[in-house]
């Protein structure tokens, strides 16, 4: 009899839990399933809680999760700005566009910059899926970390890779007529190398080109649009004060000029030639030395 009573009680209790779970909208509730699910719907509890948005309830962004399993779960109706932004970035074809647009709720100034940028214009005006939205650069929305952290996709030591995801991509560089070697040429430049080594002053992409409000280098608004603009950008007090017209020609991201290309080939041939000559010379000398020790004496001049 007592067993039955216990069973009944625990069943009642479980029922109670399920009904409350149905109504609960805190992240713990969502993570109790999504924390252990496989694939794209998985959200790591640890990483989420460590992220800058870790204290948020999921439904703050995911206001209306789809499907019967989410019945009764959801957040407050999205405000006008979020709805408008969601409509604007719809061409990107994300799974939950409304959630992806939720950033505007707290970061309206950044979104405003983005809307005017070449990236924003590509998605919003050209209605293309090529252009990035917030998460394209900032990474998986659940794990966004503050910028001075190696986990941040837009930290200066990571941003080159983040930009490279598209700007190194062949179909993008061909379609938009970018310099195909833009990443390679940056990486082999003094800027790229010093950034790789952890130089505190080495610029990454965003330092010269801008970030949220980024525009084409051909656009007069770009900090690198013209020699005059470059003189100001490069001549920043912390970088190269007094930068001249001739100085700013140093960084272009364009493929090597033929003169430089052939100079490089000539110097490589010289290096390889000298290298081969001295290796052969040293080896012959060693063999002759061994031969002389075994079979001859000296090889000196005897007059």
């Amino acid at each position: 009899m007592r067993i039955w009573l216990n069973a009944l009680l625990s069943m009642l209790f479980t029922f109670l839990l399920i009904t409350t779970a149905g109504a609960a909208t805190d992240s713990a509730t969502c993570l109790s399933c999504h924390g252990s699910m496989e694939g794209a719907v998985n959200v790591s509890k640890d990483k989420y809680e460590k992220s800058v948005h870790g204290s948020f309830d999921c439904v703050m962004c995911h206001v209306a999760p789809k499907g019967a399993q989410h019945q009764g779960m959801g957040g407050a109706a999205p405000d006008k700005a979020v709805k408008e932004f969601a409509a604007a970035i719809a061409p990107k074809g994300l799974k939950d566009t409304l959630a992806a647009a939720a950033c505007v709720g707290c970061h309206p100034d950044k979104v405003e910059d983005y809307k005017g940028s070449i990236h924003g214009q590509n998605v919003i005006v050209k209605k293309s899926a090529d252009g990035p939205v917030c998460t394209s650069c900032h990474g998986v929305p659940h794990y966004i970390e503050k910028r001075p952290s190696m986990a941040s996709k837009v930290y200066r030591f990571n941003i080159v890779e983040s930009c490279g995801k598209c700007h190194e991509e062949k179909h993008i560089t061909e379609k938009y007529k970018f310099s195909p070697l833009v990443m390679e040429r940056y990486k082999e430049s003094f800027h790229g190398r010093k950034l790789k080594l952890g130089h505190a002053g080495a610029p990454s992409c965003a330092n010269c080109h801008g970030s949220h409000a980024i525009v084409s280098a051909k656009d007069p608004k770009s900090p690198v649009s013209s020699v005059e603009a470059k003189k100001k950008t490069c001549g920043n007090a912390a970088c190269h004060p007094g930068a001249t017209e001739k100085f700013v020609a140093a960084i272009t991201h364009q493929p090597l000029h033929p003169v430089a290309h052939f100079a490089e080939i000539a110097l490589i041939l010289l290096t390889v030639g000298v290298f081969m000559f001295i290796i052969i010379h040293v080896l012959l000398d060693i063999f002759a030395d061994i031969r002389d020790r075994l079979f001859r004496k000296g090889g000196d001049h005897h007059e």
């Binding site: 003094f190 020609a249 000029h257 430089a260 100079a263 110097l267 490589i268």
Partner: peptide, 14 residues
């Protein structure tokens, strides 16, 4: 200007 900087860099490094 179109190549001077690259040539200097290549010369120095190679």
């Amino acid at each position: 200007l179109a190549w001077a900087w690259d040539v200097l860099f290549i010369m120095h490094s190679d």
